[in-house]
Design a protein around this nucleic acid. Sequence first.
RNA 1: GGGGGAGUGGCGGAAUUGGCAGACGCGCAUGACUUAGGAUCAUGUCUCGUAAGAGGUGAGGGUUCGAGUCCCUCCUUCCCCA
Length: 954
Amino acid sequence: MDIKEMADREKYTPKAIESKWQTRWQEDGLYRSKVDWSKPKHYALTMLPYPSGDLHIGHWFAMTPSDARARWMRMRGYNVLFPMGFDAFGLPAENAAVQRGVHPAKWTWANIERMRGQLRTMGAMFDWEREMVSADPSYYRWTEWFFKQFFQNDLAYRGEAMVNWSDALQTVLANEQVIDGKDERLGQPVIQKMMTQWFFRYRRYADEMLNFENIDWPEKIRAMQTNWIGRSEGARVTFHTEHGHPLDIFTTRPDTLWGVTFMVLAPEHPLVQKVTTPAQKAEVDAYIEFTATQTEIERTAEGKDKTGVFTGGYAVNPVNGAHVPIWIADYVMITYGTGAIMAVPSGDQRDFEFARKFGLEIIPVIQPEGVSFDGATMEVAYADAGYMINSGEFDGTYSNGDKGRKNPAISQVIDWLEAKRYGKEEVNYRLRDWLISRQRYWGSPIPVVYTEDGKIEAVPDDQLPVVLPEDIDFQGMTGNPLGRSPSFLNTTDSKGRPARRETDTMDTFMCSSWYHLRYLSPHYQAAPFDPEEAAYWLPVDVYTGGTEHATMHLLYTRWFNKAIRDLGVFNDAAEIMARNGRNPEILLDEPMLLLRNQGQVLGAERNGDVVVVTGQREGGQLIARRIEVLPQEDARTLERLAAAGETLPYPREDNRVVGEIVKRTENLLTIADLTRGGELQPVEVPDSAQITIPGIPGTNTVNQLKHHLEVQRMSKSKGNVVNPDDLVSAYGADTVRAYLMFGFDWEKGGPWNDDNIQGVVRWLNEVWDMIMAGPVAGMGDAEAARQAERKVHQAIKKVSDSLENFSFNTAVAALMTLKNELRPLAREGKLTGEAWGEAMRDMLLLMAPITPHITEELWAALGLPYSIHQQLWPEYDADKAAETMTTLVVMKNGKPIDRVAVPVGIGEADAKAAALASEGAKRVLNSSQPQRVIFIPGRAGGAAGAEPKVNIVL
RNA sequence: GGGGGAGUGGCGGAAUUGGCAGACGCGCAUGACUUAGGAUCAUGUCUCGUAAGAGGUGAGGGUUCGAGUCCCUCCUUCCCCA
């Protein structure tokens, strides 16, 4: 080995060591996870990626901290399962086929291959032998099987429904996939269409899904799911038309029934034709036609102008016999409740606005004490607590503003309605059944056939999976691709007669609703999962991923789990569980016990140009004559001077503005003027203005001026994508991992920032140098050894607590602090070889989950036995972490005024005496007597703020 | 309009039960070593003040010996739902 090589060896070169250890770990099966009932299990799961072709920095941000935590659990003695796979069905593959002529399967598998390689560079402890790919027939065989289970047990049905149809995607979408009337993928308009589709009985588990008692999920997700399910308690009440047709409505406010002054039907309501009078018919028909062009969002937007048409018909209110006009209006949805509402304008703002617009009567029925409402003069609806009025025998009953039976007025009215048979108590949900049909190719087939006589038959189990055909031409075709494959389409039914296959495929959320089960035994043939594995590993202990799945994946997967539990799919596993002393009653109700969401890494912020604008004042704004963009260095210098409050080379002048462009709208610039303390200044740029930009010769235009960009999602078109591969080759995986954990609040995320990574680079270099330098010969010092031990144990506590709480940034900070503490001790030769070795050893162990490669390399360099990742987490010892001396903080009225060194655990009397004797106390007391002296004892652990305090109250 | 977050230095961000606000890091400043420095090392770095000291966590009020943390009012902002 020559000198250069030796020098290189002494430097930390991640590239050399990372692939070496990754290969070794894989060869040794270091991360294989096997059932072992003698050890406690821990199933850590992070949401699987869609194989779009390239790993994104967001994947690293989601996965590597989860990996660190899984590794930490493993070091604590848990048998950890941390699998990875691919959510491989979906539209992008099909789009690639259409656009580039690549078969979706080919495109998908090539991407998977590429992403596997990228995932490996993370150095995560994924057990690749448990990998699953949802587009693999060995996987979707069981997706189909689950569909059959649902189909055969009345959880899946074919139904006619108004669906969201995307012309751009040529398929229907679930409500969750439609945002503001547009599809969430392309942002193209979605229209309403009546179609026959496959549904799952999503509502069947609505109430159970509202219960989060036994799971630790973020408040935010629970709120979103609760909101999405939208349970409302109330009553169904039957009105009748004047012709005697029953007309059911659902209301959450039966206590306001006496205030009904009109009814509103959805334009699609079947009774509309029956109640419409000949005189109104033309107007009604025209309105119905108009409504059909509106999206649901447009129809229900709260601020919008109310529209509607009188049908000419009347309904009879059962509670008081009143005849009220029947209207139709687009804000009533045929899909919600009964498609008809009773309108109580005095108690509902939308009804109120409608009534005012069309001159309908308003009758107040709930009135707070001390107020007297008059329907003719009310200005807004009143929906809060009050006493019932104008309500017959219920007058004077108190309605407390609550919903459902918690409101005594509602409760009494419901009982009364039921006794009189006018209506009955009912619960309604916003949640609609799960629409799973997609008119696409690249998804799991729906294993049913249509017989000649129009019956639906499930494909027998021994014929599963129904495999996607290969002979599809994707280019230039519209409509459902499977319908174009005769080999697929034509089949036979159970009696051997010709039959036609279902050509819809399943929503990919179906695939991702059970992937955590397939990881348990991806090669198992007899069932979707091996009950022996399930009994041990289930449920998922920690699930991490993004909030964007709150009402979709995370709600679907809960539904799926409950449905298959009730179908007995878990029965064998439950039995084995019980035999091993685990309680299946609770453990199999929910798929994931604990959920945590990471935030999003956003594109880097971009600075705007710093400009010097001269021109003429006109009113508040400057009309530019000349705009000069400053070169980068000058701009930075200027900003630095301004930040430091120093004199700028440009004094403040009325006809000049100097600063960064923070916004530009057409020809109007907004500039944070440095000569005016950053105050925002509007600057108008006429075409005649002379603009100079360094490096761009010739005439420049206002369009070339760069304004400060908002922090935003990374995307190729915005040119702000951070490529993890580039980062890894520049810094190494350990640095990227540690930086992602250190530089952000993990649950929050934030804009990417290149500069801050330097801190992590220095940290790892210093750790490397410190250990490679070996112990420095010197006099071993007992106090120094004690100090090293103390700092190590304080770090054990801090790092453990941080990882436990997903507070990855403070875990890294604690490790950096430990390095800072140990380094002078090591360098000055104050530690014996033994004390040094112990401290380095523990420091590496604490770092191992976060930076697995460098720690493995240094572990080996210390001559310790392979592998560091099979070692136990150092045990925290509070005695060893304890300090002997601490700082007593002397305060005056809660503000620190002095500090005194005192022994840890100082008693109240001693502390007070020491405090009163301090210089600071003498000064503030000035020989007067304090009113009160309060002692706050120190806390254990050596954390900040744990010191004892004495507060002197003057 | 309803629900859930968030607001702390130039920046990313810390701060168990109310108990030294600004850990850790970036950046910056000064110095050292260098042919050189976008390397490394040392020191400093909330604001005002030469200092003693005073002030300080979006604004205002309250509870408390003591509030970033609890309560009330308001402002800004992000997300979800309508």
